[in-house]
Simulated assay, not measured.
Amino acid sequence: MDISTLCIHGAEDHTHCTGSITVPIYQAATFVHPGVGESTGYDYSRLQNPTREQVEKIVAKLENGADALAFSTGMAAVTALMELFKIGDHLIVSDDLYGGTHRLFHHISMKNGISFSFVDTSDSSEVIKHIKKETKAIYIETPTNPMMQVTDIAAISKIAKENNLLLIVDNTFLTPYFQNPIQLGADIVIHSGTKYLSGHNDTLSGFLVTRTEELSEKLRFIHKTTGAGLSPFDSWLMIRGIKTLAIRMEKQQENAILLANWLSNHPKVQSVYYVGLPTHPGYEISKKQARGFGSMISFKVDTEETAVQLLSKVKLVLYAESLGGVETLITYPMLQTHADVPKEEREAKGIDERLLRISVGIENINDLIVDLGQALG
């Protein structure tokens, strides 16, 4: 079944006598036992809920995983993931990382005795250089947020397997529609479902998808114990959002390519970071491991004043945090997504007062260009 069809029909459950084509919202906290030692398969919604189960099934199918676990937010998913590790364990992590994950690793995980090496994972030799006996996993974003660095997933998977390490891939930016890390050797795939999977900026969610049942069993124990499962209503919203994932991703990418080229030719724009541009250093790897380039663009303008002016003057484009929805959003990473990253570290990565990030939506591209044009001046 083609992935675009799977997005629409993958969560269907025809066992209900009503014939409803949508999955019901089981807004229930607990479930009746038929008798002692008997169960319907559902006991308490923290453990599992029928609506959550359906969205987990569709995400697992889309990522070709053994299982998927749905969480209340993307960060709840990453937090639960870190419970796989213990005091003294070491992880190698992409050095250009979503600010919330950076905050979790530096302020929570390190406090709990886990250590990290933050490296440029697009350079395999750097990854190899930082492996030590305490290393348990390699954690990558690709493309990274916000500098759009691309890591060769298959190459890092080979390194991970040779050293008996888990490979964890945050696939939020490209989604399973464009990229399937498990097929490239990943053991666990992360999604902030809030973003493209939902697609409408109206709910929060997160997912962990596992390659094996063994990893699923470990994570399900953590999932039920820590208690950050996705609610029934939000699970239903996710199912509804995924139905249009394919057409949204195609339209957003179409707009992003046109917008990236327009930005590249604007006199006040100095650099454009979009993996779909042939000039991007990760372009060829992206073509090899993904079916598309997505719709995330970061770019640098000539001055801080230009950046502030643009954010103040946009009308159609919305100055707001988050990404992946049908609306085009523009973000100021140094003040928003990466505000908690120390200034020296942030600027060393290029995240400064001139850097902006756009999540391109599905509006008419000419309207987006007109709006950004008048805002840039």
Rank of each mutant, 00 (worst) to 15 (best):
residue 126 E to R: 09
residue 345 E to L: 12
residue 305 E to F: 06
residue 341 V to N: 00
residue 293 F to I: 08
residue 140 I to L: 02
residue 289 Q to P: 08
residue 158 K to C: 03
residue 160 A to F: 01
residue 94 S to D: 08
residue 141 E to A: 08
residue 258 L to N: 12
residue 1 M to C: 09
residue 359 S to P: 03
residue 334 M to E: 12
residue 323 L to W: 13
residue 156 I to T: 05
residue 35 G to P: 10
residue 283 Y to R: 05
residue 277 L to H: 08
residue 195 K to T: 14
residue 127 V to T: 04
residue 255 N to T: 04
residue 255 N to G: 04
residue 121 T to Q: 00
residue 206 G to Q: 03
residue 274 Y to Q: 07
residue 106 H to C: 11
residue 153 I to M: 03
residue 75 M to D: 13
residue 37 G to C: 11
residue 41 G to S: 12
residue 123 D to I: 14
residue 61 K to G: 03
residue 314 V to N: 02
residue 366 N to V: 13
residue 101 T to V: 15
residue 280 H to S: 13
residue 199 G to P: 08
residue 284 E to G: 03
residue 343 K to M: 10
residue 139 Y to F: 15
residue 88 G to L: 09
residue 197 L to N: 00
residue 134 E to W: 00
residue 130 H to D: 07
residue 348 A to F: 07
residue 73 T to K: 11
residue 254 E to N: 12
residue 341 V to W: 00
residue 222 I to L: 04
residue 360 V to C: 05
residue 340 D to G: 09
residue 191 H to L: 07
residue 368 L to N: 04
residue 78 V to P: 04
residue 34 P to W: 10
residue 134 E to N: 11
residue 175 T to F: 00
residue 183 Q to S: 14
residue 9 H to M: 11
residue 38 E to L: 15
residue 4 S to C: 13
residue 374 Q to W: 08
residue 267 P to T: 07
residue 219 L to I: 09
residue 155 A to M: 05
residue 266 H to Y: 08
residue 194 T to A: 10
residue 23 V to H: 09
residue 248 R to I: 03
residue 245 L to K: 00
residue 368 L to K: 05
residue 111 K to F: 08
residue 52 R to D: 07
residue 165 L to M: 02
residue 345 E to S: 10
residue 63 E to T: 11
residue 178 F to L: 13
residue 140 I to D: 00
residue 361 G to R: 07
residue 112 N to K: 14
residue 56 E to N: 10
residue 308 V to L: 14
residue 190 I to F: 13
residue 173 F to R: 11
residue 101 T to Y: 05
residue 319 Y to M: 09
residue 330 I to N: 01
residue 147 M to P: 05
residue 274 Y to W: 06
residue 182 I to F: 01
residue 199 G to W: 03
residue 370 V to R: 13
residue 37 G to I: 12
residue 235 S to I: 03
residue 104 L to A: 03
residue 287 K to M: 15
residue 240 R to N: 12
residue 187 D to Q: 07
residue 50 P to F: 10
residue 187 D to S: 12
residue 82 M to F: 15
residue 226 T to R: 11
residue 6 L to Q: 04
residue 183 Q to T: 05
residue 230 L to E: 05
residue 333 P to T: 03
residue 211 R to F: 01
residue 239 I to Y: 01
residue 258 L to S: 15
residue 289 Q to H: 07
residue 310 L to F: 09
residue 290 A to S: 15
residue 349 K to E: 02
residue 230 L to P: 06
residue 337 T to C: 05
residue 262 W to I: 08
residue 55 V to D: 01
residue 339 A to G: 09
residue 96 D to P: 03
residue 310 L to S: 05
residue 99 G to K: 03
residue 20 S to C: 14
residue 149 Q to N: 11
residue 112 N to L: 04
residue 374 Q to K: 14
residue 105 F to E: 06
residue 185 G to P: 02
residue 263 L to I: 08
residue 104 L to G: 01
residue 115 S to N: 10
residue 48 Q to V: 06
residue 20 S to N: 15
residue 271 S to Q: 15
